[in-house]
Design a protein around this nucleic acid. Sequence first.
DNA 1: TTCGTTTCTGTACACTGTGTTCGATTATGT
DNA 2: ACATAATCGAACACAGTGTACAGAAACGAA
Lengths: 209, 209
Amino acid sequence: MTEGGDRRVRRTRRNLTEALTDLILERGYEAITVQDILDRADIGRSTFYAHFRDKEALLLSCFDDLRDDLRRDLDAMTPGVEPHDPGQPSIAVFAHAYRHRRVYRALCGRHGGNIVYGHLHTLVAHALRMHLAPHLAASGSPIPAEAMAEFYTSGLLGILTWWVNQGFPHGPAHVAQMYGAMANPGIAAAIGRPSDAETRPTISNASRH
Amino acid sequence: MTEGGDRRVRRTRRNLTEALTDLILERGYEAITVQDILDRADIGRSTFYAHFRDKEALLLSCFDDLRDDLRRDLDAMTPGVEPHDPGQPSIAVFAHAYRHRRVYRALCGRHGGNIVYGHLHTLVAHALRMHLAPHLAASGSPIPAEAMAEFYTSGLLGILTWWVNQGFPHGPAHVAQMYGAMANPGIAAAIGRPSDAETRPTISNASRH
DNA sequence: TTCGTTTCTGTACACTGTGTTCGATTATGT
DNA sequence: ACATAATCGAACACAGTGTACAGAAACGAA
């Protein structure tokens, strides 16, 4: 048994996802038509609809494997809530993006449309809420947990898309450090703990290029 | 002279923009068809295209007046750079949103699509950059100004959409205070100035409802 | 290799929505 | 009251979507 069933199916799906990501980088998601994908992938119309309900279903399937990966990474660090860094999930996100640069460039860059962005947002917000909740409960912060999660999630994804659109000019650890420098002081203040963002040494140069 | 020219034109544009915002709140921007707008506004097809190139042009025209307003507010505070609060533009944004609750609910809520969001983002990012630049230049912060502007803009808009989607549960000053509590410590750390977010008294209750 | 099964292909079709055109009609400002 | 300008409505060409089906091709297993 060759993994994953029929070879034709694998070929079809691979060609389609590659065609889609290519086209997104060239023209942006919104401007792409199903026929464009078909032509680029050299796949028949009826074949496409045998696999995916529409363009968006294909897009999400491109993101599905990645999403599972990321969710695993995030869940892995949730149980043992690290008390010293409630913003820790950010590292997982940046590392994940760096590991899959090409797809992120297509799905989360300025061309990617907002569908994938929305899913990422949900995922990250949930993880952040998990990490912040225990600290917030103890501190009696006046800021609603929802609002905090929203703020730090948006900031994280803002930095992420900036990083992606710049073409990953730094290593993931460096970007995570930047994020931490901006986010941690506020988090520390909210949960009544002194920020350690400044007591730590500036990060060693983990960037490439 | 009655302000703004022909009464028919005013009627048409008013009906169209009202129909659009109504429909956005009901079904979301993406799901709306030009025909839907026409039916709701009771306007002929050719009339619509005499005024707007397409659905998106109408959407932007809904936001245009607001945008000019907001830009004026933001520019008004840029010249006399207030050294004590580089995050000051946030107040203008929240106040502006509160003043135009209904439109913001349609354009910046979860139903509004990302077009308006993108324009808002550009506007706010620019204002924040202006306010941060002088402080950053002096402090020699290792974080690129672009990245900082991106982070705090995303965070601000994140809080804004959260606030909008909740139905404006607090007054604008209260939300601005929440934003400041999360953003200011990080900004203060970056520009080498102690945060004053905690030395200030907790804001007086400016919320309604 | 053969054979039954699954997938792919190409074409055709119905359908929805877009944006334009144009002559007839109606409202507007003066 | 009148010239002007805006609206209407119906028709049209067009692009893209999603479905159906019958024949060809590729597949995996024996």
